[in-house]
Structure formats: structure tokens, C-alpha cells
Simulated assay, not measured.
Amino acid sequence: MTARRTAAVRLSPTVPVWLLFLSLAGASVLWSVNPDATVSDFVILASLILLYVFVSLSHVDRVVLRRTENGLLLGGVIVTCWGLAQLFLLGGFPDDTAAVGPAPDGRFGNDLVGPDNLPVALLLPLVVALSRAVTLTGRPQRFLHALIALLILGGILMTGSRGGILAALVAAVTLAFVIPRSARASLLAYGAVGLAVAALVWIYHPWGVAEREVETTSSSGRTDIWQVGLAACPRYCPVGSGWG
């Protein structure tokens, strides 16, 4: 009888860093002015970080990795198709109060994890689809994953999140540095198509999509907060304010 030893998983040095960040984010609930909203956002953050930690501690081979990627792609496609169904069949996207139903200023994701969090969830499926579109050997498979990437990009555009669109651009640029050089030309071509689609949506905002991206008054009060912060900096920046 032979004993089988399972090789220990090498712990990535980023795992304790992310766990420390998660603990600090959780502590912010103690001084939050809106604890319920903070807890809701913390749960989303915790789910992402803990998923990363569990994956880092798991033994992964090519088969498991392939299945995980397929699951991510399937989830991204289903979510985006739900957004298209809302847009074309259900009268539009819901507003912040999802139970009310479609609203003129509704955004894709209000009835899910939120229109600012949803693009983050769609980034990984987008990167997986783009990577496969330029690295797989079969032309039909490359074309299929290019269509999936375009579909998921449409989902990100439907959220109306400027940060999500910027993150998608950064993710595509980062992907260009890690894929084989022979695939970079194809990625550049797909990127040009994606930018063209995004530009057309921003300019013409069909069916009301991407209207928020071109509105100059939709800063959610950020500029006011920044001005107040700059004014208070000489007093509080050197020593801080309270626990923060």
C-alpha cells in the first residue's frame, strides 16, 4: 500500500495583502454614515476576495481551469442577455429601486449587484473571451469567442459605468502584454472594433444606452466632495480625522 502525498499549494504573497485589505474594509463599517450600504458593498468585495483566496489555495490543472473559464463565460453571456431582454422586451432598465420597474434613468445592473459593480464582474469573462479569441487555433472557435467578447462589452456599456469602461480598456491593454506576440495583432484588431463600437454607442446612444457617459452633470457629487476634501486637507491631512 502506497501513501499518496498531496503537494502543498504555494501561497501567493498577494493573499495576505488582500485579506488585510478586506479586514480594513470591514472595519470601516464601524464609522460608516450608512452602515447598511457599507455592509452591502462589503459583502460584494468579500465574495470577490474570498473567491480569489479559495482559488489560490486549490489545486488547479488545465481541465479545472478550462471548466472555470467556461463557467465565467456562460455567466457573463447569461447576465448580458438578461440586460438585452430588459432593454428590448421589458421596457428598459430599473432605477435604484429595482422593485419599481423600468425607469427613464434606469441602468443595467440595478436589480443585480449594482451598475458600478456589474462591470467588475464582467471584466474577467471579457478577458477570457478576448484571450481565447486571439490564441485558439480553430477559426470558428476564435470567431465565437470574439462574438462573446463583443457581447460582454455591450453588457459593460449598458451599465453606464464610466469606471467600468475604463477598466475594460485597461484590462485589454494589460492582456496585450501577457499574450504571445504572434497574437497581439489580432488583439489590436479586436480592440479597434471594440473601440469603434463603444464610440458609436457614446455618440448615438441607441435605445438610451450610454447616455450617462456623455452627461456632464452626472458626477454623483464627486466634484463637491473633492473640493471639500481639498479645503479640509491643510487641517486634517497631517494628523487625520477620527479613526480615518
Score class of each variant (00 low, 15 high):
G191Q: 01
E215W: 13
P234L: 09
V63C: 01
A8F: 02
L136Q: 05
M158V: 02
V63I: 05
S131K: 10
G164Y: 03
T68V: 11
P206W: 08
D95L: 00
A168T: 03
V33T: 13
L144A: 14
L195I: 10
A3Q: 14
P102H: 11
V239Q: 08
L30C: 10
V214C: 07
L188F: 11
R4S: 13
V100K: 14
L30Y: 04
P234N: 08
R62Y: 04
L124R: 00
A27R: 08
V120Q: 09
G221F: 08
R162M: 06
A8Y: 03
W207Y: 11
I78G: 00
A37V: 06
T6Q: 12
V15S: 07
L19N: 02
L118K: 06
A37E: 13
A129Q: 06
L73V: 15
V9E: 12
N70A: 15
A99V: 08
A25M: 13
T137A: 14
G229Q: 07
V170P: 00
L22T: 04
V209P: 00
V214P: 01
G92M: 01
A25T: 08
S241I: 01
L48P: 00
V29A: 12
A210M: 07
G208K: 03
H205P: 15
A133H: 06
G221S: 05
L87A: 03
N34C: 11
T14F: 10
V197T: 10
W31L: 01
E215Q: 14
L20I: 05
V79E: 02
V64P: 03
G155N: 02
L19V: 04
A183W: 07
A210H: 02
I49N: 08
A196T: 07
F93I: 02
P13L: 04
V127M: 10
Y52A: 15
G160R: 01
A7D: 12
N70I: 07
P180M: 07
L11P: 00
